[in-house]
Design a protein around this nucleic acid. Structure first.
Lengths: 251, 251
DNA sequence: GTCGCACTGTCCACATTATGGGCAATTAGT
DNA sequence: ACTAATTGCCCATAATGTGGACAGTGCGAC
């Protein structure tokens, strides 16, 4: 919101509106959007027409709007050109096979991360998350792993701007505690997410670094609490080996 | 291009640029884009900054631009809110099981269609290679099926504006022949795509209609030529049953 | 049937916003 | 270190997006 690039106001408005429509549980109508967004009627109307003309949204019979299929087409390109996804695939499958649990790959996007790949657990009870899901920095294994891999300055800068919204009752909303967790995680080489993003699910996370030791992605192993093994090195060993391997062969 | 909605010029430019970047085989640099698009340097620079600020593109170390992860997040919403995808899933699996071949579901987007689901034998279904692919109207099973389900006026209007680009040596590029094919297809209840979109692959397609008998989606069965059964009713019977079932229970 | 209400869709003068010529800063190559 | 090619950035200009006010449309109540 604050980061206003000069000369792109209307574009930012349109994308903000698109995001809002995508985030809605049910397709909003023009009236809904008038209440929820701070646009005047003609402006909103024009923005919607622009989005619709581009196929980014489609208008349903009842005049409500929902995300359009062109987004799926654009996303395909994004997935296809993600070299980290390609490179990590085999290693992620290996981690899944070693641990038997679901493995996620995420990359930073905005003030959080987006899952760009998922290797499913072979067990019958699984998580119901999907590729494309946005997760906050403070309440997910991949998020905290990403934070822990940043420099102190970068970390401080982000923690100052981000609000720690409670996602579950377990979510860390105290910046001090979060910082403690991150410090601890740096020492042990992985992060632990204790049901902070989804009740009943714990995660182990670690970041993938580029040649400058900057995080470019993060992976996590998600385990249903009831199935969690006592010896967590079962998970963390596989995780650490994976990120070491992927970080080393960074171009 | 032609359909210019008033008051959205800069937005249309930005999306056009984004599409161009997504369509590129390799991430373009600012110089590349200056040659390929008709923007002045400052304009292009500003548009790129706007796209990057929104996370729709990311700038690589060598200053080139590629599609960003936010597109994947937006696409997830598009897939999640696609009721036809949800509704068709079971029926598509049935067709796959009956024929043993890959089944696609596509919806119209711009002057073509986009695959929004794919059922393949013994493959985990996720947002992978072909979901999100754009296919032209004239050179694909789903495209011709969609055309065949339109009224004569709508069909004529579209055939006047669309250029029949040759995708393979088999692609129908003669409007007269295409119209003949469509007429024939209407009579028999399905369309046949003889390697027109991919050499070595033939498709059988049919459209899914809403309560007003207007096409809202199309499905196709893709068969490698070498494996094609002599008795094509093996495919077309399953296909026709599927679309009849899906068209009937339209809300 | 027709009245009233709430909604979607549109016009047009205004000024805010995007535009692009030109130039500075940065990187790559010899 | 010097040149060449690239990226990055002002700022005057006018073209573009903005929003107040109003017209059209569909739907339910009485």
């Amino acid at each position: 919101m604050a980061n206003t690039v000069q000369g792109t106001q209307s574009f930012a408005r349109s994308i903000g509106l698109l995001q809002h429509i995508c985030d809605r549980a049910s397709p909003p109508t023009l009236g809904d959007l008038l209440d929820e967004c701070f646009f005047t009627r003609p402006t909103l109307y024009r923005l919607l027409n622009g989005l619709e003309a581009e196929g980014l949204i489609v208008q349903l019979r009842d005049k409500s709007y929902k995300p359009g299929p062109r987004l799926i087409n654009l996303a395909r390109s994004a997935l296809a050109t993600s070299d980290i996804r390609e490179r990590a695939r085999d290693a992620l499958v290996r981690v899944r096979d070693q641990t038997g649990e679901t493995v996620h790959l995420a990359v930073p996007s905005g003030d959080g991360l987006v899952y760009i790949d998922k290797i499913e657990s072979l067990e019958t009870v699984r998580m119901n998350s999907t590729v494309g899901t946005f997760v906050p920095l403070h309440s997910s294994g991949v998020g905290k792993a990403y934070l822990a891999a940043l420099s102190d300055e970068e970390l401080a800068a982000i923690l100052d701007t981000v609000t720690l919204a409670p996602i579950t009752p377990f979510t860390t909303i105290d910046p001090i505690k979060l910082r403690e967790q991150i410090t601890q995680c740096r020492a042990q080489g992985f992060v632990f997410d204790n049901q902070e993003n989804e009740t009943g699910i714990v995660c182990f996370g670690a970041a993938i670094l580029d040649e400058d030791a900057k995080p470019i992605a993060a992976i996590s192993i998600s385990v249903p609490l009831f199935r969690l093994k006592k010896d967590i090195s079962h998970y963390t060993a596989a995780l650490k080996e994976c990120v070491r391997w992927l970080s080393e062969d960074a171009i």
